[in-house]
Amino acid sequence: MKTQKRIVELLPGFNCGACGKKDCAHFAEALKMSQAGVQDCPVLKQERFRSKRAVLEQMLNHQDGICKGAVPKVGLIDQALADFVLHPLRGEPSCRETLVNFAGVHLEKGQLIRYRPLGCPIIHFGRVLELTNGLLDVWVIGPCQFINKGEEPVELGICMILSFQGRIEGQLPAIGQTVKFLPAHCMMGKVHSGIVVQMVDGQTRIDCIDLKVWQHADRLPSS
């Protein structure tokens, strides 16, 4: 489990404020609460901090309630087959989701939100990263971390997920390809589908997200 003290030990310790925080201790707290990412510290990008950055990224990518160990490419709920597993971008706690905020609630970057994706029975907790014309880019950071915790989330109700961003584990698809993928942070192990609109060094953006199941493992044609 990640601790703020351990995160501070892995940071450069310059207290320069380039990350937008007062000092490294405050940045460590933001990392621990999923309010910032490793990429927000420009000093960590220097070659001399490469090993510490790698340890920090691994720590943040395996926090409680997100992803532990290998993720199967067959969905747990409906046994649907996935083309690949979608993992978080480096140094981030989960895949990024772009949501439609039907509630019309005023939000700000860094706020904690509580919502249920359309078609999903699981309540999600997310951290707002960007806001653009009613669309929200968020990290999914719960529900495990924020049950009975002190921070009060903003209630959004039902939201529609438009896209995912993350790193691919498995065969890389082509831009424009319709794919089935398994988000590593999905508690249900539910295979999603969508269209690949961006692909750079194994990092992808997938739009037109759908939860429909196409093909089951036990219905594959025999070879």
Rank of each mutant, 00 (worst) to 15 (best):
G65L: 04
C95K: 04
K2F: 07
V128W: 02
F14K: 14
I158H: 04
L182M: 12
A28T: 01
I161N: 06
R50L: 03
E152D: 05
V140P: 01
Q58G: 15
G75H: 09
A103V: 00
P221F: 06
T132W: 09
V74M: 10
E92C: 07
G166E: 02
V100K: 15
E9K: 07
L89T: 09
V197I: 06
L211K: 03
V43L: 06
W139N: 04
M1S: 12
A54R: 14
R53Y: 05
N101C: 03
L44K: 04
L99V: 11
H106Q: 15
A82D: 10
K2H: 10
F84Y: 07
S34N: 14
L131W: 09
Q35L: 12
V140R: 01
L56F: 11
D207C: 13
A28L: 09
L81F: 01
Q46C: 05
G119Q: 02
L182P: 01
Q171V: 09
D40E: 14
H106E: 15
F14S: 12
V55K: 15
Q4D: 02
R167E: 04
F84L: 00
K2V: 13
C24E: 07
C120R: 05
I66A: 04
E151Q: 04
C41F: 13
V196M: 02
I161H: 03
V197E: 03
C208T: 15
L99Y: 02
P153T: 01
S223M: 15
V8F: 05
Q4G: 11
C41E: 05
G65V: 01
K5C: 08
N61M: 15
V71L: 08
C67P: 02
M187C: 11
T204N: 07
R90H: 06
A103R: 13
E130S: 11
V191G: 11
L107T: 08
A28N: 01
V100C: 15
K21E: 09
V55R: 15
K32L: 14
V197L: 02
V197C: 00
G65H: 08
C186A: 04
F125R: 08
L129Y: 00
V197G: 00
G134Y: 05
V8I: 13
G104E: 11
V200A: 07
G104P: 00
K180C: 07
G176V: 00
L112N: 07
L112H: 05
C95I: 03
H185K: 11
F84W: 03
